[in-house]
Design a protein around this nucleic acid. Sequence first.
DNA 1: AATAATTTTTAGATTTACCTAAAAATAAAA
DNA 2: TTTTATTTTTAGGTAAATCTAAAAATTATT
Lengths: 220, 220
Amino acid sequence: MQSYTEENYLKTIYHLAEKTTNVQTNAIAEQMQTKPASVTDMIKKLADKGLIDYIKYQGVTLTEKGKNTAIDIVRKHRLWEVFLVDKLNFKWDEVHDVAEELEHIKSIELIERLDEFLGFPKADPHGDPIPDKNGRFAKTQFIKLIELKVGDSGTITGVSQHSSAFLKHLEKLGLTLGKQIQVSDVTDFDGSVEIQVSDKQVNISREVAKHILISSNGKN
Amino acid sequence: MQSYTEENYLKTIYHLAEKTTNVQTNAIAEQMQTKPASVTDMIKKLADKGLIDYIKYQGVTLTEKGKNTAIDIVRKHRLWEVFLVDKLNFKWDEVHDVAEELEHIKSIELIERLDEFLGFPKADPHGDPIPDKNGRFAKTQFIKLIELKVGDSGTITGVSQHSSAFLKHLEKLGLTLGKQIQVSDVTDFDGSVEIQVSDKQVNISREVAKHILISSNGKN
DNA sequence: AATAATTTTTAGATTTACCTAAAAATAAAA
DNA sequence: TTTTATTTTTAGGTAAATCTAAAAATTATT
């Protein structure tokens, strides 16, 4: 059994490992809002417990056991987010912090039943996939909106930025999950993207377009 | 803001204060499964924070602030229990431990919305009253089953024992919340009580009868 | 390849919630 | 009212997760 803190480290390492192969002490420290020295201490502990592989000065990687634990936490987090949005009417930009706490509730039975209660959802309110109870993810085929060409269309199925500011911005523009969009123009000047959503034209910056994930429908 | 542990102490003190006026160190230690010396330490801390009144060797009482905090935790605990039973189909004897964890989730918004989602329940799955968001309890008029006379009838509206063994026993006998019962006999030999529930006769020990709470209907 | 910059680790402290063992206060019994 | 028993507190220590400051290793730059 891991402590609350150990679980957070594993989750952080898991997420960092999605971007870089071997995860560095400083990166963990930044993410965990703590100091590198503290990270080194915890890293040793997790390595002793067989949850990560660790070579001094070389960063860490999750072991199979560590990865399973991390995925389980991710699963809980995302299921709770679905609960908060679908059942308690939270907005998609309001759920993260609460889910951050709920993910550490330890009952397996609870999560199984919650999963069932929610209808075995495949994605959380931000489009991130929810692993099943065996830790398997449904295959998803995303493309960043920024990569679409003029005329291309698709459905908004996720975001790769979870800040409240970003999500509120999308909400205001009507760019929520499930919406159909079509790229009508890409501005030469600043690379901003003109898209059509719900019969309206909206203009979004490159930065925003980078973080919207589209599943292309039709020609693919 | 209190720690998880501080919250548990406050809750424990609150529950003990329902029975005895000033709560003793040893009683807290027993309830918290810890040592009296540890309790003394924590008591000092809570007193410093203005959550309890404490005179050395004289036990403790909750301050207004401490009591409010405790009631808030009780509220969360009971609402989560309702959620687990009503929405996730847990049995009434399975919810305590999970609720024990869930009660510490800190979001006020979460609890307000949960309360609403559950339809503002007035009692948890064991019949214990749920304080409203201002900490007020609905007035309840319970009488112990053991105190009923032959011929008296009423509705099972609560239990004063929450052990899984006890609750499972009641379940097996069909003695669940909301059931109408009538006392048909009280055995001279051992004081056990013969009652009628759902057209069946069941016999329960004095010990069991002590812990079933009845709201009398009709003549009252 | 030597030096500079960065990253990571070690060493030694701190805080929280515990503990044990012994002392002090209170309550109960002779 | 002493003596005995019980309860509570103090004193001193431990483990977990953190910290700062300094040392060591690695990486980048000249």
